[in-house]
Design a protein around this nucleic acid. Structure first.
Length: 401
DNA sequence: CGAGATTCATGTGAAGTATACCTTTAGGCTTAA
DNA sequence: AAGCCTAAAGGTATACTTCACATGAATCTCGTA
């Protein structure tokens, strides 16, 4: 291999990079200034302020679509709160858990276990009774006098899966605690989430309610400009590129996360092409790339069985127009299992897997009745052909076909 | 011709099972007095 | 006798299976106009 790798690295270092601080364009990044959310931040701060006097603030519920700044603002306010409490020696702890994370907090046991882990406990993945884990959690918290602010991100996902008993138990904790107090901030994408929830939970959890409206294109532009100032080096980004990203993201219910992704990926594309400024066409390329990558990411992390089911759907759709029905998929799935020498799951389970794939947005599945010819799910893929081929290759590799 | 019964293919809920892992407990062995 | 290790016993969460029943519109049936 006579490739001059050292030269590539050398060039990379010598060239003035487009980026100055790419982190500013990631979702983890918390900027000092959050435009167009002043109102919500102030409201949230007012609600939580009593915490500094060791009075338990009201529980809060935050609603809003993805990328409307819910998590960001909540985390921002809480970290500020944390900063002040530290300097004034107020015993306050903020815990953030995302309930959607597979294998982390997507069941009652796992959520409580995860919470206990946040407090330094070592909880096994399985084996303990859930009550026991609750007890451990209680006792750890209650060891000394403090106030805990518990942020449950995407709780709607958790409740949809395992019911609202978890929330009930959590809201009840306060009555059992002698020293500590716990305050819950729930974050949900689903505005109608509270409707079908135990009224007892509802009343105690929904003491305060906050709605984050989606950003419009202008607001997105402000946000991006703000971040771009930090992320890019001078002169490598233009107003028009930013405007384009904002416009694209505004089309999708004003998703700021998407806007940031667009900008970041566009920058990466320009950088890789060896240019020193981002151009508008990069944004178009970025949009394609993001769609491809996010789906790829999801598919890659799928359990093998789900991959097989998905692959079955691909195979059928390659030779035919949608829609495809559950029965067909199951047959093909079984033959795939024979080829990969894995034990096929039952149709019952596959039915659930199809539902999950639907939830993930990889496929569209709709239950329909075909009258005399029974009842089934009508399934189609929700991605473009080009991405479809890419995923197919990916599955082939993963399934070793 | 139309109301009501029938039918099909699979959705869906509940209960049961296998697996992997946990704590407790009872021996059994070693060790120190 | 006390201490320590090990293996069995008894228990749990989770992913999956088994069983059984629910669904709902196209189609069929049959009485009636």
């Amino acid at each position: 291999m006579g490739v001059a790798v050292d030269k590539i690295f050398e060039d990379f270092l010598n060239k003035q990079s487009i980026f100055n601080n790419k982190d500013a364009l990631t979702i983890q990044y918390t900027p000092d200034n959050i435009p167009h959310r002043e109102e919500q931040i102030a409201a949230l701060a007012k609600i939580l302020a009593p915490a500094l006097r060791m009075e338990k603030p009201s529980n809060v519920f935050v609603y809003g679509k993805t990328g409307s700044g819910k998590s960001l603002c909540t985390n921002y306010v809480c970290s500020q709160l944390n900063k002040i409490s530290e300097s004034k020696n107020v015993p306050l702890k903020v815990v953030y858990v995302n309930c959607k994370m597979r294998k982390v907090a997507d069941t009652e046991y796992r959520l409580i276990a995860q919470l206990a882990r946040e407090f330094g406990q070592n909880i096994p993945a399985t084996g303990l009774p859930t009550d026991e884990v609750y007890k451990i959690f209680f006792e750890t918290i209650d060891k000394d006098k403090k106030l805990i602010i518990l942020i449950l991100d995407e709780v709607d996902q958790l409740v949809k899966k395992v019911g609202d008993e978890v929330l009930y138990n959590l809201t009840r904790i306060n009555q059992e605690l002698k020293n500590a107090k716990i305050n819950i901030i729930g974050i949900s994408n689903d505005v109608l989430f509270m409707n079908n929830i135990d009224p007892r939970v509802k009343s105690s959890l929904n003491e305060e309610e906050m709605v984050f409206p989606p950003y419009d294109a202008l607001q997105l532009k402000d946000i991006l400009s703000e971040r771009a100032k930090i992320a890019f080096n001078k002169g490598s980004i233009s107003e028009s590129v930013i405007a384009k990203c904002a416009a694209y993201a505004a089309r999708e219910h004003g998703d700021a996360r998407r806007a940031l992704d667009l900008l970041r990926v566009a920058g990466e594309i320009a950088e890789r092409a060896g240019r020193d400024r981002v151009e508008e066409k990069d944004v178009d390329l970025a949009e394609e790339k993001i769609e491809k990558e996010t789906i790829e990411e999801v598919v890659k992390n799928l359990p093998v069985q789900s991959q097989s089911v998905l692959y079955a759907a691909f195979l059928i759709l390659k030779s035919r127009e949608p829609p495809v029905y559950t029965g067909e998929i199951y047959d093909v799935y079984k033959s795939i299992c024979v080829r990969t020498a894995t034990k096929p799951l039952t149709q019952r389970r596959v039915s659930d897997l199809i539902s999950e794939l639907d939830m993930l947005g990889i496929i569209n599945a709709k239950v329909i009745s075909k009258g005399r010819y029974g009842r089934t799910r009508e399934i189609s893929l929700s991605v473009s052909d080009e991405i479809l081929n890419k995923i197919e290759d990916l599955l082939k590799v993963d399934l070793k076909l």
